[in-house]
Design a protein around this nucleic acid. Structure first.
Lengths: 151, 151
DNA sequence: CTAGAACCTCAACTAATGTTGAGGTCAATC
DNA sequence: GATTGACCTCAACATTAGTTGAGGTTCTAG
């Protein structure tokens, strides 16, 4: 019982199957530097097994609502050269937990305001905090809304 | 003191200024049926004043994370023919409040799971509820993720 | 050794949510 | 009555996050 099987790299089909992410999305992630693969002599991708964890992290982060750009940035903070340890991942998760907390707080705030607005039936801008949460989110470009202002 | 000024329709510039939404976005909303304008003899848009509230509703809904398609659907549930009353708007807000509640709950669930995962450092799919919240979200098409499955 | 499954690249397409620009009109003011 | 700012339409572009398909190669099983 050598641990050989445990270290055998994954083909893209296997990674896709196990992660639930389509092969085309994996290609896409690779093009964008989120994951990386070695190649066989025949040019097929072979993923290190910890890529599975990496993909899991990407998916989870997307569930939280983060754009790939931010996820990439976070992944880049993982140690170069060595396989990330449990502790490395935990540190990243902790970071996301903070973002989650903030996001939850923001939504709760919004809900409270909404309750107020239901009372007055307003939704009438200016007068209502709902519309002026003192941020500049409305001014951002196209694409998905960020839910917290970074920096 | 006649209430004439109160009923004067708004030009697109005024609506844009007061709502904080760019004129091009207002054009876009109109193309997509979210708002509507009368026209002057010279073909310029004139918005009824309650359009301001409509736009406010759109913006608020977007802050909650809803796609325009859903917002349109909600707006279509407003009474045809007559200007929506305070109560009509309050009903819509109440609906959003529910969605907000669900969304908050989902995020809190995610956070709890994340806490568990930080302990184990896993994020390793299959084993972790984070990755398998027993929904099919991952299978949906392109574009922004929905955060609740609308049946 | 060969059939079929799995894989490769590259380009084009999708969808949501707008923005930008060109080319032309309308309205209020000096 | 000309200028200037606000407005009009229409087409093209931007961004995010991928998917789809064509055309060709590699790997595995019989």
């Amino acid at each position: 019982m050598t641990p050989v099987e445990t270290h055998r790299p994954l083909s893209i089909g296997e990674l896709s199957e196990r992660s639930g992410v389509s092969a085309s999305a994996l290609h896409f992630y690779e093009r964008n530097g989120l994951i990386h693969a070695e190649r066989t002599a025949g040019n097929q991708r072979r993923y290190r097994r910890d890529t599975l964890r990496r993909v899991a992290f990407i998916k989870t982060s997307q569930r939280v609502g983060l754009p790939l750009k931010d996820i990439l940035e976070a992944l880049n903070s993982l140690p170069e050269g060595r396989t990330p340890t449990r502790h490395d991942w935990a540190k990243l998760s902790l970071r996301w937990r903070k973002e989650l907390d903030e996001r939850i707080a923001a939504l709760q705030h919004l809900r409270n305001d909404l309750d107020g607005c239901i009372g007055c039936g307003c939704l009438s801008l200016k007068s209502c905090t709902l519309q002026n949460p003192s941020d500049e989110l409305g001014a951002s470009g196209a694409g998905a809304q960020r839910w917290n202002a970074p920096t």
